[in-house]
Amino acid sequence: MNSSLIYEILLYLNSFYFGMFALCEFGMGIFKAVNLPYPTGTVISEFLLLLFLCCTEFVRIFLGRKGNLTERGLAVLVSIGLTVPSIFGVLYFLIWQTYVLRLEVVLCAIQLILQGLEVGFALLCLLSFYKSGAY
């Protein structure tokens, strides 16, 4: 029994949190697109990026939970790998997108903290898997 409870809790929490995050981002995207001027194409690319982030996050959380519960190190490893594009995606919404709203700063910060914690616990989890030789 090497599965990490905290990692599972974090992932479970993150799955709901990210659902909310994506919904909020989508809503704010529409809000900004309506209210503020955008260079041509930027709105579409930002929405595409959100879509990409959704996909990455879904796969990341799915693989993380699966790997944690079935004690498969590879899945957890892939999940950790997917954290990189995911973090970049969140960072994009935090820093590089055309207009950053205050709510986005808050949401992105929480998401980043969650992701950081998950990476940490995923590594601990992996370590325990390797120790017990379950891989």
Binding site: M28, F31, P39, I95, W96, T98, V100, L101, R102, L103
Partner: peptide, 11 residues
């Protein structure tokens, strides 16, 4: 104040 104010304007 307000959550929907623009913190950063990249344009």
């Amino acid at each position: 104040d307000g959550l929907f104010c623009i913190v950063r304007d990249n344009l």
